[in-house]
Every structure is written in structure tokens, then in C-alpha cells.
């Protein structure tokens, strides 16, 4: 009981830590690390719950759920990184074309949606915009 509580509470703390970092840090890589730590916190809670009865063998069902969750989390990470790398490529292209003054804005996309313009300083930042 005490061990299960300690471990479960640590999982909840990990969740909160990841949530905080996901909300306040802008670079995508840091957001992804934060998301993975949040996920690990939830998985940790599952494992702690499975371990609850100290005497008997742990519950295999949460273990299987966590295995599934780990694979899902890594899939999401891979997709997010690929999207981000595509975004960085576009920014690199945009900033290299800006050396000549003909950096005409792409019609019908960025200019119209009111989205933040490509950040010129390179490090890709992702805000939770409210505008």
C-alpha cells in the first residue's frame, strides 16, 4: 500500500511536471520531451496500480496497456518530429531566399490565416496562440 502510493504519486508528479513544461516551453523538441514525460507518468501510475497487492503477482492487464501506450507514444513522437523537420526545412528555405529581396509572401496561405510568420531566428517555436 505504501509502496503503491509512493510510486503512484511519483507518476502523478511526472504527469504534472510534463504538463507544466508542455505549456510553458516553446521549442517543439522540449514540448515532445514534456509530452513523453507526461505519458511516462500515466504509465507509471498504471504500473504502480498493478503492483498494489504486495504479496501476489502483479496484475498483467495494466502491463499490457502500458506496452500499447509506449508504442503509441513513440509513433506520435516520430510523426511530430517528421512534421517539425518539414517545418524547419521550409524555414531554412525561406530564410535563404530572403538574402535576395524578392522574398514574396506565399499568397493564400500564411498571409491570410493570421498565423505567425516563420520565425526568422531559426529555432522552431510553437506557441499556443490566442490570436
Amino acid at each position: 500500500m505504501t509502496a503503491a502510493f509512493l510510486y503512484g504519486a511519483a507518476g502523478l508528479l511526472l504527469f504534472a511536471l510534463g504538463l507544466w513544461s508542455l505549456l510553458v516551453h516553446e521549442p517543439l523538441l522540449r514540448k515532445l520531451i514534456a509530452f513523453n514525460i507526461m505519458g511516462s507518468g500515466v504509465f507509471h501510475l498504471f504500473i504502480a496500480v498493478a503492483h498494489r497487492s504486495d504479496g501476489s503477482s502483479p496484475d498483467p492487464v495494466p502491463h499490457a496497456l502500458v506496452l500499447t501506450g509506449i508504442v503509441v507514444a513513440v509513433s506520435a513522437t516520430a510523426l511530430a518530429l517528421a512534421l517539425n523537420s518539414r517545418l524547419e526545412e521550409a524555414d531554412a528555405k525561406a530564410s535563404s531566399s530572403k538574402t535576395t529581396p524578392s522574398g514574396a509572401p506565399e499568397p493564400n496561405t500564411t498571409a491570410r490565416t493570421g498565423l505567425p510568420k516563420p520565425s526568422s531566428n531559426g529555432a522552431n517555436r510553437l506557441r499556443w496562440p490566442s490570436r
Partner: peptide, 9 residues
């Protein structure tokens, strides 16, 4: 497009 990739990320 850049806007689409960013929005969907």
C-alpha cells in the same frame, strides 16, 4: 504548405 504543416503539428 508551411501553414498547413504548422497548424497540424
Amino acid at each position: 504548405s508551411r501553414a498547413a504543416v504548422e497548424a497540424n503539428l
